[in-house]
Design a protein around this nucleic acid. Structure first.
Lengths: 210, 210
DNA sequence: GTCTATACATTGATAGAC
DNA sequence: GTCTATCAATGTATAGAC
């Protein structure tokens, strides 16, 4: 039954901008939780609570859990992503080194290994993606292609694309293994080897400052 | 209430050997299903039905679903694993090439890409493992170390271990990405690049016959 | 050792109020 | 746009019979 002049119509307490802000809070909360626990182990209620909201409100922003998941993956490319992927070099400026070198350093770093919640989604849930639906896979591919692009634009010659694919493989392979293996030394060895090899192959310099 | 001479005591219809056989059926069924759908998306009932058994009987073999999962990962090292990993070269014998070369070929092959159910567990559920318990991670590490061992024992010199780590990273990274990306060409490129690079680095020969 | 039946908890999704 | 309340489905684990 309708009520001609209820609280809602009278006051209009929420603006479209507010909705966008809320939506972003949900996505950020979800990104952390999915990375930490995996897709299936996270509940809608959990995500909403962590975002300071309640369970029921979720469905005014997303139709399904998987739809949120896809947006979460894609969200990594936006500015809300952890600062590690935005800023340039941490130490003194090194204009002689290409930007992609910093991405590589950050990717295969101990920081990234330990920052599970802020992880690149390529690492966080690769198997959930492989079992997921079309939207999720499309988002995953977007992120992968974005990384390939960054690497490729800092490489020259005919082999640029091939080398970029190789770098992506080293990044993802090294970090996936390091995260799954409960042996600190072996994990560090895997990351170090991948990093060193990537630098050797591209000629982007030695491993100093890693 | 007890029944002094019931059907069970009278006939003893199941032998210990039979139990082992049943257990193995459960593990094999689980391995396929976990690889196909992911840990959380598979139910005990599903596993048991696929094994030709019923839900309730599960708990006479395993205490929890995760315990079964750990055994499933480790199971890959046993003889029940798909034949791809057991047999040597598919084509004509090539005694000039090391055995590890065949493992590498098989790992980064289109067959492995498409055979999701029979996949190496290092690929099938890396993120589920990263979020899993100690037993699961230990099993995962065992498989990883086993692969490192195979590669390493076919390499010479001081850099043998480092190269073995690199090969593992290329195998896992290439296949994880290829499985998660819904673009056949890009997936094939990733596998091909990783394979080619692995062969170049180790000097195990060209990519002929892949 | 395996089966049927069921208790019990969880959770994705909806309905309706404000 | 968000909240409370609730439904319906699913799934882990247990109990007891044979």
């Amino acid at each position: 039954m309708l009520y001609p002049l209820g609280f809602w119509e009278r006051s209009m307490p929420y603006t479209p901008e507010h909705k966008q802000k809320t939506r972003r809070k949900i996505v950020r909360s979800a990104a952390r939780l999915f990375n930490r626990k995996g897709f299936a182990e996270v509940t809608i209620g959990e995500i909403m609570t962590a975002a300071g909201l309640t369970h029921g409100g979720f469905y005014r922003h997303f139709n399904t859990k998987e739809e949120l998941y896809a947006e979460t993956v894609r969200h990594f490319l936006k500015k809300e992503a952890p600062e590690r992927w935005q800023k340039g070099p941490a130490g003194p400026a090194r204009p002689d080194l290409p930007f992609a070198r910093y991405v590589l350093d950050a990717y295969l770093s101990r920081d990234h290994l330990e920052d599970v919640e802020g992880s690149c989604p390529l690492i966080g849930l690769p198997s959930d993606v492989a079992h997921g639906g079309d939207a999720v896979k499309a988002a995953y591919r977007e992120v992968a292609e974005s990384m390939i692009h960054v690497f490729k634009s800092n490489l020259k010659g005919r082999a640029a694309r091939e080398q970029a694919l190789l770098l992506l493989t080293l990044c993802v392979g090294g970090m996936v293994l390091a995260r799954a293996i409960d042996d600190e030394d072996l994990a560090a060895d895997l990351l170090g080897t991948a990093h060193k090899h990537a630098l050797t192959t591209t000629g982007w310099g030695d491993a100093r400052g890693r």
